[in-house]
Amino acid sequence: MRPPTRLARAGGALLLAAGLSGCLSAYIGPAPDENTPTAPPSAQPGPATAAPTGPAAVTVTIGNFQFQPANFTVRPGGTVTVVNTDAVEHTLTAQDRTFGTAPIAPGATATVTAPAQRGPYSYQCTFHHFMRGILTVA
């Protein structure tokens, strides 16, 4: 036979549980009546997908070893046209290499498609690393 202290502990736990039950009902309200029909919860709409805010196409000009504009916004999948007005080749290449142009000869034009994922993308010229900018997909 076990000592009575174990029964006292078990009884104390039951009293504690009963006490918590009473405390919780004060916060969540009384239990529903079995005979009262309950309505199903209303359907909550899912998160809305924001419409694109950036333009569908942007033109970036390279001149004097600078991107103009260096920072710009385009919608997901939008077109970026890059015009090289410098006397040397340049590229417009994402730092993580997710997008980019081939070398663009002086006087030539290239296009690149913006990523589908929204957010900022740092880019640079692979020949001249000091030439940098941020393409924001929105």
Results as ranks from 00 to 15, higher is better:
123 Y>I: 06
9 R>I: 10
84 N>S: 04
132 R>L: 11
35 N>T: 14
55 P>M: 01
129 H>D: 11
114 A>E: 05
44 Q>Y: 00
81 T>V: 07
76 P>H: 03
130 F>Q: 14
112 V>A: 01
96 D>Y: 06
68 Q>F: 13
76 P>A: 03
33 D>L: 08
115 P>G: 10
46 G>W: 00
124 Q>W: 14
61 T>L: 03
45 P>R: 10
108 A>L: 00
86 D>T: 03
120 P>S: 09
24 L>T: 06
60 V>Q: 08
65 F>R: 15
122 S>G: 11
21 S>T: 12
79 T>I: 12
89 E>D: 09
86 D>K: 09
49 T>C: 06
49 T>S: 13
48 A>C: 03
81 T>L: 07
64 N>A: 15
22 G>N: 07
81 T>I: 07
55 P>E: 04
77 G>W: 03
38 T>Q: 12
75 R>G: 09
130 F>M: 13
31 A>T: 09
62 I>C: 12
102 A>L: 10
34 E>K: 12
126 T>I: 11
47 P>W: 01
8 A>H: 14
27 Y>L: 14
105 A>P: 09
6 R>N: 15
62 I>V: 15
35 N>I: 09
130 F>T: 13
94 A>T: 05
122 S>W: 04
12 G>A: 14
109 T>L: 02
88 V>Q: 13
116 A>H: 00
125 C>A: 09
88 V>P: 09
98 T>R: 07
51 A>H: 00
113 T>E: 05
59 T>R: 15
44 Q>E: 13
59 T>C: 12
11 G>N: 10
28 I>W: 11
66 Q>N: 14
118 R>K: 04
21 S>K: 04
4 P>C: 11
116 A>Y: 00
27 Y>N: 04
125 C>K: 09
78 G>K: 08
55 P>S: 12
52 P>Q: 01
137 V>N: 09
99 F>H: 01
43 A>R: 15
11 G>A: 15
138 A>F: 01
131 M>E: 08
38 T>G: 13
93 T>W: 03
36 T>M: 05
106 P>H: 01
124 Q>N: 13
97 R>I: 04
52 P>H: 01
55 P>Y: 00
